[in-house]
């Protein structure tokens, strides 16, 4: 059974703006799921509905088998949320605010658990510092500590590494992997494709309130990836010969490189024909290599494709 099941979920705000329309999504237990989408696509609305901050217009959501409306206590107990904004109680100390979060979730104080979290996030030395004295990166760590204070089974990270330095980003990636090892399901939204590429088991792409794709990361890259074939020519050529104009070739490296972009999904990649054509044109090459396109290219391609269709 998926740990989160979302069915026909829609949200239209009172302003008339439809943020989500008919979302169906299942998040598997113990996976790291990355939700990608441009600004305003509905990522935060989706997370906020699951967490109880935004009321859905229609549809159902269950968390670990508990309906988020009818059995909200059990559903919310399973969830930890790290919001996008750095919202903290400026005058509180780190230890107080993290202990407060644990209490909100109905748990008895557990100083040993809180200490473990603060140490893991390099916050222990700052436990008596007021939040307003901390840097942005430290505040982000505090928000993560708060979300982990009640030992959630599902952790939502809404744009977790927006505006944080490289060190913290690496720390967070390590933390997310550790959590997954402990069986925690992690759902993150991000603008950074490299984050999804680095971390996620599965990727969902949301655009204009609709999930346009959910796929295993590796399969997605395999299925949708475009490849580039680069041929190192023995002698430079001034232009692509007209007889090869059927192929979308680009000339680079001062006429010493021919680049051919092809779709791995296509029935025929055209490589054989291209090589035959090159031989017929008397163009010889000394080396060749291929490159898989990155997730970023795939993502941009998907979003553009959707926009063209719309």
């Amino acid at each position: 059974m998926p740990i989160i099941s979302i069915s026909k979920l829609s949200k239209t705000y009172t302003s008339g703006f439809t943020a989500l329309s008919g979302i169906d999504l299942a998040i598997e237990r113990g996976e790291i799921f990355a939700l990608l989408g441009p600004n305003g696509a509905g990522k935060s609305t989706l997370i906020n509905i699951v967490c109880g901050i935004v009321t859905p217009s229609s549809g159902t959501v269950t968390v670990d088998g508990h309906d988020i409306a009818a059995d909200y206590r059990a559903a919310r107990r399973a969830i930890g949320l790290v919001p996008q904004e750095l919202t903290t109680d400026a005058f509180e100390t780190v230890l107080n605010t993290v202990s407060f979060s644990r209490g909100l979730f109905g748990l008895r104080p557990d100083p040993a658990h809180i200490e473990r979290i603060l140490r893991a996030l390099s916050l222990w030395d700052k436990r008596d510092s007021r939040l307003m004295t901390l840097s942005g990166g430290m505040k982000r760590r505090v928000l993560i500590a708060k979300a982990l204070s009640h030992e959630p089974r599902v952790l939502f990270l809404d744009e977790p590494t927006a505006g944080v330095d490289v060190e913290l980003r690496q720390d967070m990636w390590r933390l997310v992997r550790d959590l997954r090892q402990q069986g925690v399901t992690v759902i993150l939204t991000t603008h950074y494709i490299e984050e999804a590429e680095e971390m996620a088991d599965r990727i969902g792409v949301i655009r204009r309130g609709q999930i346009i794709l959910v796929e295993e990361k590796a399969a997605l890259m395999r299925k949708l990836g475009r490849k580039q074939l680069t041929l190192q020519l023995q002698a430079p050529i001034p232009a692509v010969p007209p007889e090869l104009s059927d192929y979308e070739l680009a000339l680079a490296g001062d006429g010493r490189e021919l680049i051919y972009t092809y779709d791995t999904r296509a029935e025929r990649t055209g490589i054989t024909g291209l090589l035959t054509g090159l031989a017929a044109a008397g163009i010889q090459f000394s080396d060749l290599h291929t490159e898989q396109s990155s997730l970023e290219d795939i993502f941009v391609g998907l979003v553009r494709e959707g926009e063209t269709r719309a």
Binding site: C51, G52, I53, Y72, R73, A74, A75, R76, R77, I79, L81, P83, T87, T88, D89, S101, L104, F105, G106, K146
Partner: peptide, 9 residues
Amino acid sequence: TIYEILSAP
């Protein structure tokens, strides 16, 4: 910080 109250059980 009200998000925390709203998302708590």
